[in-house]
């Protein structure tokens, strides 16, 4: 596969702690890549190395096969989680300024600003000071500033924070459109549902180590537990060595809901045959782990002592 960005054995340590410990990543061209991990795992450190805000202690980042250098800055667009704009500057001027700092000519920048302003319905706000805009509007301006120079690699850190659902959708569509045009997007977020929705590949970083990476579908397959959900009517009493009931719920009118795990190479069809002999089956489906489940499971496996599921829930 053609990788736009490769991180090879990246180490980064600060005075008090190690932020990245031998992290390697391959980010395929034209994909949306989810960079996940609990707070303080080292995601921001990695992003700051990619955007050349800081440098790695050791290891290498390759952009399109070349060692990362200042020439690549113009090809990277970065929307940091801690973001802001000059409050007393007009929206139009601000965008022009930020675009020109990325190396765009004045004419090009003006032209593109016009297009984006219209696409995101900001026309009326162009000559207003940023401080007069609502937070959502400011986020839109910020998003435009990130992609204005048409970077090949766009890094978005929590891009949906501060948006209402309508605008979040608008931005999501723009992100997908950017991928259609060939851009690669690194997407760092704690909102797992948007990861499921958007990401082609993910990497999970925990305590400065990469603990998981790969295509989302593949990861989900590996994390499948051979568990099936069954709904139906009747009295279900599973007494079978190959079928393990993980959960059993009785509902009104003799209905039930069960989660059953298969063992010893039995197939779903075996379970289905067994069920049909005993009860009336209304629904039968494989339980596919969500990214959320995988995230929590993997994080707990890699640091069981410090965070419980509950704490993670709170952190999200």
């Amino acid at each position: 596969m053609n990788n736009i960005l490769q991180a090879i054995d990246v180490h980064k340590a600060y005075a008090a702690h190690v932020a990245l410990n031998g992290v390697s990543l391959d980010i395929p061209q034209g994909s949306i890549f989810g960079l996940l991990g609990p707070n303080g795992a080292g995601k921001t450190s990695l992003i700051r190395i990619i955007t050349q805000i800081t440098a790695a202690d050791s290891g290498e980042i390759r952009f399109r096969g070349e060692k990362l250098n200042p020439g690549h800055i113009a090809q990277i667009g970065y929307l940091p989680e801690e973001r802001g704009l000059y409050k007393k500057m007009k929206v139009g001027e601000q965008l022009l300024y930020l675009a020109r700092l990325k190396g765009l000519s004045k004419a090009d920048a003006t032209e593109r600003i016009k297009q984006w302003i219209d696409r995101l319905e900001l026309r009326a706000w162009v000559s207003k000071n940023v401080e007069d805009l609502s937070k959502g509007m400011q986020q839109k301006v910020q998003f435009i500033a990130t992609v204005l120079h048409e970077p090949a690699l766009i890094i978005l850190d929590e891009p949906f924070s501060g948006f209402d659902p309508i605008n979040a959708n608008l931005i999501k569509d723009e992100i997908l459109a950017l991928r259609e045009k060939g851009a690669t997007i690194i997407f760092s977020t704690h909102r797992m549902e948007s990861v499921e929705e958007l990401c082609d590949n993910i990497a999970l970083i925990n305590r400065s180590h990469k603990v998981l990476d790969g295509p989302v579908r593949h990861i989900k397959d590996t994390f499948k537990t051979n568990t099936y959900e069954v709904e139906g009517k009747g009295r279900l009493m599973v007494i079978h060595p190959d079928f393990e009931v993980l959960e059993h719920k009785e509902r009104e009118n003799g209905h039930f809901y069960d989660r059953i795990r298969l063992h010893h190479g039995t197939t779903p069809n075996d379970l289905l045959r067994y069920l049909i002999g005993n009860v009336e089956v209304h629904a039968f489906r494989e339980q596919i782990p969500s990214i959320n489940d995988i995230f929590i499971r993997r994080v707990q496996e890699t640091m069981p002592e410090s965070l419980t599921e509950k704490e993670l829930e709170v952190k999200r």
């Binding site: 940091p80 000059y86 700092l101 500033a145």
Partner: peptide, 15 residues
């Protein structure tokens, strides 16, 4: 002001 506006990180990713 640039620091408290949080525009720093945006800026230093370009310059």
């Amino acid at each position: 002001e640039e620091k408290s506006n949080r525009i720093m990180e945006v800026m230093v990713s370009s310059v």
